[in-house]
Design a protein around this nucleic acid. Structure first.
Lengths: 143, 143
DNA sequence: TGCTATATATGACTATGTCATATAGATGTA
DNA sequence: TACATCTATATGACATAGTCATATATAGCA
């Protein structure tokens, strides 16, 4: 429904307002999912922000994230002691902030995984009910 | 991790600040999930806000929603022509606003279902990688 | 010098959700 | 009558995650 540039929910200046999350949004991004993804990536291999951007965007069409969000999220996770960073001045180009997961970060990743498993169950229940509803409706039409 | 009343991320006034979504939050609520749930419930049976609150909270421990959010969401969905409402002054107690799904709302529900299916796939991929990561780590420990 | 790629970061804004509170009709009861 | 409670809808202030635009700075190359 209303994919691509959506006229319906735009004001005169072309900005969206009172937009419904699932509608208009080009990407099918899952909210609150960046942090666990980062924890897992950094656990697999410590890295710096710009490289993480590339690793994320290589995860498929909806994998890419906004650089601003990425850097802010990494700093927030550092404030919460989930990751640690050190400046890396070696190599070419500007200095890089290299992140690695802390033991607390690993614990948090386990908590995220449990939560995501629970979310999956909830989504399954919804989809079951959804399909059931439309099966019933089809049968009613036949009768 | 830090379930129940969380000391870690509180300021002096007892308010939470700079809190991470998955952390501290008592409920495992899925964000952006209320609208499709409402569309499905109203499709199964048209109803008014207060009754929907009860139908939602009977859906298990994480099913309940904030009344303020519910009423605002219903009005928002009406602005977007996903539902329609009429005042019901019959029966006892104050008047009720009775909602029903529009054809546009049904279309939107299909769009939501497609999106939720996609979300499920993404969560599965994450969990697969997560489990794989910790299998590998276990093996390393053995070696 | 100017252009591009790399790298990190902030500002303004939106959407969803949380928590507290306001408003008001109907009903029971002291 | 007064008041307390249940039912029912609604608003205000605020938090968190995400989007979009933009700032800043190093390094290499034409």
């Amino acid at each position: 429904m209303c994919s691509g540039p959506c006229q319906r929910h735009q004001d005169q200046s072309g900005h969206h307002q009172d937009r419904i999350n699932g509608c208009c949004a080009a990407g099918g991004r899952v909210r609150g999912f960046l942090q666990p993804r980062l924890l897992l990536l950094l656990l697999q291999q410590p890295d710096y922000g710009y490289a993480l951007l590339e690793r994320l965007s290589s995860e498929g069409s909806t994998g890419g994230v906004d650089p601003g969000l990425l850097y802010r999220t990494l700093r927030q996770m550092e404030r919460h002691d989930l990751v640690r960073s050190t400046w890396d001045t070696e190599g070419q180009g500007p200095a890089r902030r290299r992140y690695e997961v802390t033991p607390e970060g690993v614990e948090m990743l386990h908590a995220w995984a449990a939560r995501i498993t629970q979310t999956q169950r909830r989504l399954s229940e919804f989809l079951d009910q959804y399909e059931k509803s439309f099966e019933d409706r089809k049968q009613e039409e036949v009768i």
